[in-house]
Nucleic acid binder design. Structure first.
Length: 413
RNA sequence: GGUAGUGUGCCCGAGCUGGCCAAUGGGGACGGGCUGUAAACCCGUUGACGAAAGUCUUCGCAGGUUCGAAUCCUGCCGCUACCA
C-alpha cells in the first residue's frame, strides 16, 4: 500500500474526535512527512482495560498505521496525586513493583489494539523526569499557570461551587502532565474529553519551552452499559477487553438501545452507511442490530468463531425465539463455575439452603440469602427454592442459580 | 485566630422540643413481573445473628447526664461559610 496522502490521513484521524486543537496544525504537521510522536497517558492504578479505554487506543492505532509513533506515558509519578477528574479521595501510594505489574497488564491488554513493535511504540515513565525535579523546578512549572485559568477547569469549578475541598497539589496534576509533553516532545496528545484541560496545558508549556505545541485530540467518553455514566471499572458498568466472549455478548446485549450507535462508532470499524441501516432504519430489529454489534466487538478481541459461538449460546440460553427447546438443561450457559461444597456442610445428602447460597454466590450474610429465597431468587436445577428452613437434597452436578444469570455447578467433596 | 454552621446506613439526605428509630424519602444495587436477559413500567428487598419471639452492633471520635440518646451536656477531630 502506498503511503497515504496527508488528506487521507487527516480525514481518518479526525473522524470520531470530539475536538481537535487544531485541525490546521495537525494537517501541517502531517504534511511535514515526519514520524509524529503521539502521546497517550496511562494511569497505572487501573490495570484492567475496558472498552472505554479502547476508544482512545483505537485512535492511537490509526496513527500507528499511518507510520507514526505511539508514546505511552506511564503516570507512575502523577498517580501519587490522583487525577482531580476522578472523585476518589486519597490514593494509596503504589510501590514500584505494583506499578510495574500494572503497566505490564496494561500493555498486554493494550496490545490487543496497539502495534507494540519498537519502531511504532515507546514507553516512558514520568517519574523519570518528575522525580528529580527540585523545588525551584516546581516553582518554574507553577509560575506558568494562573489561578484563574486553573479554576476554569470544570472539575475545579464545580467542586468549588459545590463547596468541596480542592487541594493545592491537585493543581499540579495538569502541569505535570503538560510537562510530560515537553519532556517527550509530543506532536500530538490523545485523550478522553475529560482530559481536555490537562492536555491543553501541555500546549502552553511546550510553547514556553520553545517547542511547537502539541495537537490535542479528544475523543468522546464511552457511556457504560448502564446507559448513564462514563464507562469505568469503579462504576461496574464496563466491558473489559479480557472478558470472555460470553460475557461480552451478554453485556453488550444489555446496553440500552440508544447507546448502540455510539458503540458502533467508537468501538468498531463498521462503515457509516451500515451503522445507519442498523440503528436508524425503522426496519432494523434492534435486537438483531445489537447482536451484530456484540459479534463485531467480540471479533476484535477474540475471534470470529468465538463471536458466532457466543451468539449461539446466548440464543440458546435466553431462548431467543428458537425451536422451543426450553427444558432446563438446554438453556444453561456453557461456562458455569464449579463450586466445591465442603463435606461438613452436607448431612445425609442434604444441605441447608442458606449455607449453600452464601457459599456458592459469596453472599455477605445469611440474611441476604434468606431474602433471596424469600424473593424466589434461588433455584436448584430450575426449581425455585421456597423455604429457607427445609434442607435440600443435593448432588454433584446440580445447578444452583441466583437470579437470572448467576449459576454454580455443585461439586460435593 | 474569631464567629456561625455542619458530620447520619453504598451515595444524597430527613430526623435532632430525648422513648413509637435499625432510623422517613430519593438514588443505586439486588430479587420478582412484563419484555428483545434493552429501555420504560409495576411489585418487593436493602445492618448482623435467629425458624420466630428477640438479641446485638450502627447516626464523626471519646466521655457524661438519664430508667432510656442519632437526638441533651463536655472535650476532641474533620468539613463549610463569613471575618481576620
Amino acid at each position: 500500500m502506498s503511503k497515504p496522502t496527508t488528506d487521507q490521513q487527516l480525514q481518518t484521524l479526525i473522524r470520531g474526535c470530539e475536538h481537535c486543537f487544531t485541525t490546521e496544525e495537525l494537517e501541517k504537521r502531517l504534511d511535514s512527512g515526519k514520524q509524529l510522536r503521539v502521546k497517550l497517558g496511562m494511569d497505572p492504578t487501573a490495570p484492567d482495560l475496558t472498552l472505554g479505554h479502547t476508544v482512545v487506543l483505537r485512535k492511537l492505532r490509526q496513527f500507528q498505521d499511518f507510520g507514526h509513533k505511539a508514546v505511552l506515558i506511564i503516570g507512575d509519578y502523577t498517580a501519587r496525586i490522583g487525577d482531580p477528574s476522578g472523585k476518589s479521595k486519597t490514593r494509596p501510594m503504589l510501590t514500584p513493583e505494583q506499578v510495574k505489574q500494572n503497566a505490564e497488564t496494561y500493555m498486554k491488554q493494550a496490545g490487543k489494539v496497539l502495534d507494540l513493535s519498537d519502531e511504532k511504540f515507546e514507553v516512558r515513565h514520568n517519574s523519570e523526569w518528575l522525580e528529580p525535579m527540585s523545588c525551584a523546578d516546581v516553582l518554574r512549572l507553577m509560575s506558568q499557570m494562573t489561578v484563574a485559568r486553573m479554576m476554569e477547569r470544570d472539575t475545579f469549578a464545580t467542586r468549588q461551587k459545590a463547596g468541596k475541598e480542592i487541594f493545592m497539589h491537585e493543581m499540579l496534576y495538569p502541569l505535570m502532565q503538560g510537562h510530560d509533553s515537553v519532556m517527550i516532545k509530543a506532536d500530538v496528545e490523545l485523550g478522553g474529553t475529560d482530559q481536555t484541560f490537562n492536555n491543553l496545558c501541555g500546549r502552553d508549556l511546550q510553547r514556553n519551552a520553545n517547542q511547537p505545541p502539541q495537537i490535542v485530540m479528544t475523543l468522546p467518553l464511552l457511556v457504560g452499559t448502564d446507559g448513564k455514566l462514563k464507562m469505568s471499572k469503579s462504576m461496574g458498568n464496563y466491558v473489559a477487553v479480557t472478558d470472555t466472549p460470553t460475557d461480552m455478548f451478554g453485556k453488550v446485549m444489555r446496553i440500552p438501545d440508544p447507546l448502540m450507535r455510539s458503540y458502533f462508532e467508537l468501538l468498531t470499524d463498521t462503515p457509516e452507511e451500515k451503522i445507519a441501516a442498523l440503528t436508524d432504519s425503522p426496519d432494523a430489529n434492534p435486537r438483531d442490530s445489537k447482536e451484530e454489534l456484540a459479534k463485531t466487538i467480540i471479533e476484535l478481541y477474540h475471534s470470529k468463531e468465538a463471536a458466532t459461538a457466543a451468539a449461539q449460546e446466548f440464543k440458546r440460553v435466553h431462548g431467543g425465539g428458537t425451536d422451543g427447546a426450553t427444558d432446563f438443561e438446554s438453556t444453561l450457559p456453557d461456562d458455569i463455575p464449579e463450586v466445591a461444597i465442603p463435606a461438613d456442610m452436607i448431612k445425609d445428602g442434604e444441605v441447608d439452603p442458606l449455607s449453600v447460597t452464601v457459599h456458592c454466590f459469596n453472599e455477605k450474610s445469611r440474611g441476604v440469602a434468606k431474602r433471596l429465597i424469600a424473593e424466589s431468587g434461588i433455584r436448584l436445577n430450575g426449581e425455585v427454592i421456597t423455604d429457607p428452613q427445609t434442607p435440600i437434597k443435593i448432588k454433584t452436578g446440580d445447578i444452583l442459580q441466583r437470579g437470572k444469570r448467576k449459576f454454580a455447578k455443585i461439586a460435593l467433596q
